[in-house]
Design a protein around this nucleic acid. Structure first.
Length: 234
DNA sequence: GCGACAG
DNA sequence: ATCTTGTCGC
């Protein structure tokens, strides 16, 4: 709890220094248990941004049912927003709430998919990578837009992808997850290679832009779903 | 100094 | 992220 207090109350300069240190602790090889449950995480906001709303959805993995995986548990956790959005420091704004949601979770997933970057980050520690270290679980980042890195044109067919490069290294993949739609940015977070990350994203991909875990977490975290559930209560 | 910039 | 209805296209 002491470490937590210090980790989330840092100045931008201190936060940047911490990211560089933590990035060295990431495991870039596959270290994953047999997958039974996959979690999707996303964050939304309420009260004009004053309240942070973290959503976690757990799906039961089964190759037969994929990509239609049954939801076995879902949790929403709210808490006061502690810091503004600063490009590159997203994890310090979102992870505290995400950890609160995981604390309420009964199921321990073997794989976590996060809305945001994995190592495709200026200091190689995007929100998915940072969360992976905290949870000590394999994580994959799936972002809807680019934060850093360069890439060529992506093919038009579903499943086409090109490497996302930075400093002569492959930090992720720009994936055409659905035709006629902007590609998504996939990058490994913790305990996974890019190849394995792409395999899991494709396995969980329906005919939508986002793979099921983050698509459902996105919906649960959004303001839209919030109002929908309130309407059902009336 | 001038842009770029996850959610 | 969020504010927001209809509308163009596969």
């Amino acid at each position: 709890m002491d470490a937590a207090l210090h980790e989330w109350n840092l100045s931008p300069k201190q936060a940047i220094a911490l990211q560089s240190r933590l990035a060295k602790q990431l495991e870039s090889r596959d270290r994953i248990d047999p997958v039974r449950y996959i979690a999707g995480v996303d964050i939304g906001f309420e009260e004009e941004g004053a309240v942070t709303r973290a959503a976690v959805v757990v799906l039961k993995w089964s190759p037969e049912a994929a990509p239609q995986l049954p939801v076995v548990e879902q949790v929403v956790h709210r808490e006061p927003t502690r810091m503004p959005y600063i490009p590159g420091l997203l994890s310090f704004r979102e992870i505290p709430a995400a950890l609160g949601a995981f604390a309420k979770l009964e199921t321990r997933p073997q794989l976590v998919m996060v809305d945001g970057q994995g190592i495709a980050h200026p200091r190689r520690l995007g929100v998915a990578a940072h969360l992976g270290l905290w949870l000590d679980l394999p994580t994959i980042g799936i972002a809807k837009s680019r934060l850093t890195g360069t890439h060529g044109a992506v093919g038009d067919a579903r499943g086409d992808w090109v490497p996302l490069m930075a400093d002569q290294e492959v930090i992720g993949a720009v994936l055409r997850s659905r035709e006629n739609v902007k590609p998504v940015f996939v990058s490994p977070g913790h305990r996974l290679t890019l190849e394995t990350s792409l395999e899991w994203v494709l396995r969980c991909l329906g005919r939508t832009k986002l793979p099921e875990p983050t698509r459902l977490a996105d919906r649960l975290a959004s303001r839209r779903d919030h109002k929908a559930s309130q309407r059902r209560l009336l």
